[in-house]
Design a protein around this nucleic acid. Structure first.
Length: 478
DNA sequence: TTTAGGG
DNA sequence: CCCTAAA
């Protein structure tokens, strides 16, 4: 029996939850008591606005894990609202596997026995994954270990997650002892070939500074259709990995998932192991494009140093901050010692990678961010932010109201600009404006927009004073 | 880095 | 939503 102790990481017992079990991913650091629910295959995600009223939690004495179940009354309370993925763009739809991890040291990852509930939920389907939040004070009622419960001190962030395939590793996971775990699921690639993907997630924080490293190893079953993918170092980052139908002889030295999970990613124990320094961009490319034709051994990002080592320590550096890193360009060197056997280099599938995934060309090829319509909730949050901080404090609004949203300060500003433009006119607006769907906004919201826009106290302050305060006494009265 | 404006 | 100048 392993005990849950302060500073440990928590993850729930999911391995025995069955294939229908779901996953809850929540963040105890936030005030909001919301979370995201994932289905067992991490293919669907729903935002649960008020998780504390929906789930009951129980601490598992045997392994220190936490289990939870949805209450009857909670079922009716499930709220599914729009949310923004922090990192996964539209391409995710095409990814056979996508994993989103943020602030691994702080996040709270709960697996919830949610079996058979999903199909009944009239929830909007989301193809993006995001990190929700969970109030850390969520009670664990009727539990003998209540005092341990889900209090802030005992909450332990997830090291990993798994589904029904991950039994072996799940045992290690449940023991809170392993620094290694994996997640496996069957996937169907673009070619329609079935394979399974295994993700190993390791926290190598103490090992070295290879944060944001994804280690991808591949092996094949007898049918040559099995692929393992392993993650390494998911500290304070997310990973998004997928595989394709790599057809080739199974490398003999890499038939076990454990084999290509060397503690030190640099020790390329598996010939077919590729190491990817995680892309720090939000825009994910199709799986194949993770691999290019370069003959070098490892895939590595070159902007790893740009990552602040204190990222996980800064509570304010949450999802929003990570987004910035996701947007960074990366450079990748590929590893494919087995490339000649598999003739991947000649596969045109991998052809575009070199050009589009290279840091030098990324900017040029970077696609326009997918245009996500603003939801009413977002608009309301924006208006709230405007009234609280005033016009012009976009980063403050972003931090406060859109910390876990993909909306940037500029997005927020643009939206506000459009809101004002659309709603603060003498006439009813142009056809363009009406097409902007602003007429769908509730009148009270529109009224607030007008109010704020016309409020002198909320007007943007001009920066001209900066010149004056430059070398002069800043305390001088104006 | 953040904000403002134009596109 | 992007780009860029300006602060």
């Amino acid at each position: 029996m392993n005990e849950v102790k302060e500073g440990d990481h928590y993850f729930a017992n999911l391995a025995y939850g069955g294939s229908d079990a779901g996953h809850i991913w929540a963040d105890p650091k936030e005030d909001k008591a919301s979370a995201l629910y994932f289905d067992a295959n991490f293919e669907k995600a729903f935002k649960i606005d008020d998780i504390s009223s929906v789930f009951h939690y129980e601490l598992l004495a045997e392994n220190g894990g936490l289990t939870s179940y949805m209450t009857d009354e909670g079922k009716g309370k499930i709220l599914c609202s729009d949310f923004d993925g922090i990192l996964l763009e539209d391409e995710l739809t095409n990814l056979p596997l996508a994993v989103s991890i943020s602030r691994a040291s702080e996040d709270h990852y709960l697996d919830v026995d949610f079996a058979k509930k999903v199909p009944d939920l009239d929830c909007k389907f989301y193809d993006e994954l995001s990190v929700g939040t969970l109030r850390s004070e969520v009670n664990s009622p009727e539990t003998s270990n209540e005092e341990v419960g889900v209090s802030e001190s005992s909450i332990i962030a997830p090291r990993c997650f798994n589904d029904q395939f991950g039994k072996t590793t799940a045992d290690a996971m449940h023991g809170n002892s392993g620094r290694k775990c994996w997640y496996q699921r069957p996937v169907e690639d673009n070619m329609g070939l079935k394979c399974s993907v295994t993700c190993d997630i390791q926290d190598v924080q103490e090992t070295n500074d290879v944060r944001n490293t994804l280690e991808i190893g591949s092996s094949f079953d007898d049918d040559g259709k099995k692929t393992h993918v392993s993650f390494t170092s998911v500290k304070s980052l997310y990973g998004s990995v997928c595989t394709h139908d790599e057809v080739g002889p199974p490398p003999s030295q890499c038939t076990d998932v454990e084999d290509f999970c060397a503690d030190d990613p640099s020790t390329d124990s598996c010939a077919e192991t590729k190491i990817i320094r995680a892309r720090q961009r939000r825009l994910c490319r199709p799986p194949q494009r993770y691999l290019d034709g370069s003959p070098s051994l490892n895939l590595k990002l070159h902007n790893a140093k740009k990552h602040p080592s204190s990222l996980s320590k800064d509570k304010d550096l949450g999802v929003g901050s990570l987004k910035k890193y996701h947007r960074k360009s990366v450079e990748i060197k590929a590893s494919k010692t087995w490339a000649s056997d598999m003739e991947l280099d000649s596969d045109e599938e991998y052809e575009p990678v070199e050009s589009s995934f290279n840091i030098r060309n990324l900017k040029r090829n970077d696609r326009r961010k997918s245009c996500k319509a603003w939801t009413l909730d977002e608009v309301v949050a924006l208006v709230d932010g405007m009234s609280q901080f005033g016009v012009g404090q976009w980063t403050a609004v972003k931090r406060t109201f859109f910390s876990s949203s993909r909306r940037t300060a500029t997005d927020i500003r643009d939206k506000w600009r459009n809101l004002v433009k659309t709603n603060c006119r003498s006439s009813k607006g142009t056809k363009d404006d009406q097409r902007n769907c602003s007429h769908l906004l509730p009148e009270p919201v529109i009224e607030r927009v007008r109010e704020i826009a016309s409020s002198p106290s909320l007007k943007p302050r001009h920066k001209s004073s900066r010149k004056l305060s430059g070398l002069r006494c800043p305390d001088l009265p104006p």
